[in-house]
Design a protein around this nucleic acid. Structure first.
Lengths: 196, 196
DNA sequence: CTCACATATTTCCAGTGTAAATATTTTGCT
DNA sequence: AGCAAAATATTTACACTGGAAATATGTGAG
């Protein structure tokens, strides 16, 4: 089914890859149907057969984004000794991804570009969320007690790290003369412990 | 200088207001130079004299957005008795604004639409940040000790509330069958105290 | 009254996404 | 094998976008 003997062969994947490249080079404004198609060498209406619309193609790009995002989060996870180290590694990975691929990060979380209810994208996003969920287990923080503790812990960590990534990307945390934030996510994240 | 006796009279303000209306009705994709101009009753190139480009007009819209944003944050502030109540009020206001005006909120924080280095916008944004800054003073949280404590406390609270608002807006926190989040910002915000 | 200037319009252009009709290739069936 | 059907890609056309340039109109100072 995923053959390689059509006109182009593997247009579907080629379009996603071309889109990712353009995103790195020119950002979201450069990510046009015509630019993507031209890069692959097909007409600008060719993507319609595979993705329906630009939004569909962007959703596929976002899906690949979530896969890489989850890879970033898991990166330092294996060599982390303690649970606290694992937490730090996952959170750092989250931010590192946003800093390394700001435009892709923007695309992934914006309903303007991505269909967040898409099943394939949802699966990739849940895989990313799974890391955050595992990290959240048993975390102690003032206010944690109460209904839906696990879910609220996930929401707390996710909000914190996502907000940091978003604001850092928007340049709201710039410190010195270089464009980088004055403080890392780790120095802004409360040091909670794991109990029970 | 801000007279009312030209062709239109007060085009500059009229354009911003029309833009805000369109934003509420049709969201960011509907916010085109031509749509705004048509609503006011002028040609689509008229805004150029006042704002230079669509980006300039959007920056002005974002500036007005920050003014309203800061008003939301200050809303419940006067009737708050304790410092903890003031913190809750400000954070709730932040999120209420994002929920009430999601498209404007998106525009305000995205470099794609707003020139965040604009001086007027910067002033309005700083006024909003001032509330957060005041709320942050003396807040105790594990990890607060160290260099730049005040700034890091602001970053911590801002990241948390901004991330919550962003993710809630993207529908990542939906709980039941209605589209609303399952938990409020207050039930997700660690209960720190004020010491020293 | 006239000149200078600010303001707004008209016209034009290079882009954009998408729909419809057409062309081409691959696949399935007999 | 051959032929029909389906998948894939192109061509063409259209309504829309923001912006540049030239033109028109109104305002205010001398």
């Amino acid at each position: 089914m995923e053959g390689k003997k059509y006109h182009h062969g593997d247009l579907k994947n080629a379009l996603v890859e071309a889109g990712l490249e353009i995103l790195e080079e020119s950002g979201l404004p450069g990510l046009s149907l015509r630019a993507i198609a031209t890069r692959v060498g097909v007409s600008h209406t060719a993507p319609k057969n595979h993705f329906g619309s630009l939004r569909g193609l962007m959703t596929a790009i976002g899906t690949e984004g979530f896969r890489r995002h989850s890879a970033f989060m898991r990166e330092g996870l294996t060599e982390a000794a303690t649970r606290a180290d694992r937490l730090d590694a996952a959170m750092s990975g989250y931010v590192r991804f946003a800093e390394a691929h700001p435009h892709l990060f923007e695309l992934m979380f914006s309903p303007l570009y991505c269909d967040l209810r898409d099943e394939t994208l949802g699966a990739a996003a849940r895989d990313s969320y799974a890391v955050l969920s595992e990290i959240s287990e048993g975390l102690d923080w003032p206010g944690a007690e109460g209904p839906d503790r696990q879910r609220r812990t996930e929401m707390m960590l996710w909000s914190l790290v996502h907000g940091y990534a978003q604001l850092a990307k928007a340049g709201q945390f710039v410190g010195g003369d270089d464009g980088r934030p004055a403080h890392s996510i780790l120095s802004v994240m409360p040091r909670f412990g794991y109990g029970g």
